[in-house]
Write a protein that binds this DNA or RNA. Structure first.
Lengths: 240, 240, 240, 240
DNA sequence: CATGAATGAGACTTCATTCAT
DNA sequence: TATGAATGAAGTCTCATTCAT
């Protein structure tokens, strides 16, 4: 039942993966451009210059596509976080409270700049988090999504702990603080959509202020936050 | 030629309004139970034991129903805020910083407890705020929704200003702080849906912690926050 | 089973007739303004400031309204013809070929000017004659329509015969000529709708030329036709 | 990567065209049998033993079907005219007045015999010309219909001019005469539907008489018309 | 692997008609 | 008589999915 792993096969597998990727790319674009009802299989196929039936060779159905989209978003966010950590590492003398705070701040900045860096990714998250019903019925929910999600949260929490250890802020449950930070930040970013009602809502600095408020609320020193602000911004926006 | 302009007429108007209400009630339930695509005219009619056509005597179309739902939610939230303000007024000596802080804290609590007090209302807000695309196309968006929304925000902001004036917290732009507070709170509340992934997310105290963090970040005294916590909880949960 | 014909009853009957008339008037307007699908019972009732159900006290159904509309058109056309004959009578010395020709010409003019004088009536005729299917299913077709129609045709034919007898034109089957004349005239008038494709089609003189061609084809003298043209025009347009 | 661009490909295209044809055929039948409201997508699908959705792969909507039907009718009429001209060419010595008159007469005969040769096509024209409102909203009216229509009219006019040049009839504006002829002929043919009221109306010779009347009215010699009548009839009826 | 024809349920909306009040 | 709430079938169109080629 196993297929011979020779060159031809590999080439085939690779082409398959590339096609899957193309499909997901286009699906994501349609999704955020035209909303849920804008993503139809027929439109997707037309956009890809494919036949409708062909898509079903790559995905068992529409909801599988949606699940894959969600996973991709989570994965990319994880990669962003890693890259950001690396970039932040060298910006301050290692081991200092400031270094730990900057690393934490940049990690938050990764999410903060998501609507700018990957608007479609962010919109998908909005869709996912906003729907009272699950996007994809729980039974068919790909369980592999969960670890990715956990890893993300874990990464944040680790940085909070590191910052604490470095004396940058007071004690407190790191996981809970992470979740508060993430939820709050997402909530504020999400308000941007309502900018047509209240222009202030579309304001990009609203999120930055929130993050500083919260970190200050967690015990971080306002002066220290001021000191790293420019570097944090630069590093976060420098991400792909 | 003249029609009796009293009892009979009035009765008819009243029954009409009652029917409208019933329709909205049921629509709301379907919406939050089954999501956007779960609310179909046919299902709504079946649930109401009505013929499909009958609904169109009460609302010109599906989007009119959605708009009405949104307006109702905003209106009720406004009423909640007023009642909460009244209730909070007597709980502390008037004019003291604590009184101002409590009033502010209870106002936030109104939103904080919304998922418990009016789960369907909250879910509708989630839906509204979460959809990247507008629920109802902007052109047909009932403009009367906007003032209600503005009034809500304004009410919050006024309380922030009052608290500041009473010395309960440091200076800062009240409107921007209101928006941050609201967005952040909504974001954290919204995470509860994800409780199946991460049980902590369903935790009711997460929101409370966030609010205290933020108010502290705005300059409020942690001790004062501790002092009013129980009263604030009680007053907010006592709302209908 | 007969109702007492006293004053009150009569008044009631009269009011009933007046209401029927109002309904027909409005129905006709909707019909020609918005086409078949533009005439709906609900719209009709709204326009009349009536309840839907009320209309069913005056007409058993929609098709009864349509039938009544058709009858009214035919009746009014008959009245027009009578008035026109009367008016034409005095314009030329009685008994002369010219008098007979003028009377005939004016009778034709009655139909020729119908689109101007009663646009809605004419459009209804277009609708009736143009639909391959009967407008109103034959079974429910009011048989009283037929006599009116026959009378109309008969009136025309009589004038053709009179004109022949007076030497104004050559022999030929009067009924057949009438039908040819009527059909041809209607056909040309009907083309006006296509004026947006070919402006000439909207030209009012096209019909006049056709009538003269045909009468000439029937044997009438071109000079005589020229001689009565202005009077014929004037008399036909003077009708209500 | 290249797909076989021959047999298979062609076969599919051909089948597609054939299906389109089948749809149009059936639509035309329903249309003329049951009128505008008799042509519904559901009925059409049922008649074709198709699913409703399938039709939308061939036509973007109902009005596209109607437009296509109209175009087909106009196109076929144009082809008929060409064939008839060819057939008439040899029947009389070239260049004689009689040859020109015959060619003209046969061209008219093409339309005259349309109700017999292509009853459904004629009924569609009745529908099109008879509806006061446009069948298909002007904006979505396929502009390619117009040239076909113009060409048709132009063909008639050219023959009238040719006949005049050959001395067969007196001077007069050819285009206007064409339009009169066409409109009048259509009007008389259209009366046939009313045969149930007045049997004479169903009479096939009524149209022939009209045409001769009109051509005579245009100045043609009655004797010449008599001389070509049989040939004209034969040639016109010989068309497919 | 790819195609695209076909399915069929289901979406929203309209409308002539009935009937309790 | 008049009202207007209610019916329910029918309208057009969409869409995820299947399957023979």
């Amino acid at each position: 039942m196993t297929t011979p792993p020779d060159a031809a096969q590999l080439g085939r597998e690779e082409r398959r993966a590339a096609t899957r990727e193309r499909i997901l790319e286009t699906a994501m674009r349609l999704l955020v451009e035209q909303g849920w009802e804008g993503l139809t299989i027929a439109k997707l196929a037309r956009e890809l210059d494919y036949a409708v039936g062909a898509l079903y060779r790559y995905f068992p159905g529409k909801s599988a596509i949606l699940t894959s989209l969600e996973r991709r978003v989570v994965e990319r966010l994880g990669q962003d976080l890693e890259r950001a950590a690396e970039a932040a590492r060298g910006a301050r003398p290692e081991g200092t409270p400031e270094a730990a705070l900057l690393e934490l701040r940049v990690a938050v900045g990764v999410y903060e700049t998501l609507p700018l860096r990957r608007p479609t990714d962010f919109k998908l998250l909005m869709l996912s988090l906003g729907e009272p019903r699950e996007l994809v019925a729980s039974e068919e929910m790909d369980p592999s999504l969960l670890p990715g999600f956990r890893a993300l949260i874990g990464g944040f929490a680790a940085r909070l702990i590191a910052a604490t250890a470095a004396g940058a802020r007071t004690e407190g449950n790191a996981l809970r603080r992470t979740l508060r930070l993430w939820g709050a930040l997402h909530g504020v970013l999400q308000l941007r959509k309502q900018g047509r009602f209240e222009p202030t809502l579309a304001d990009a600095e609203l999120a930055e202020e929130l993050v500083e408020d919260l970190l200050a609320g967690f015990g971080a020193d306002r002066a220290a936050l001021d000191g790293i602000r420019d570097d944090a911004r630069r590093l976060a926006h420098a991400l792909p």
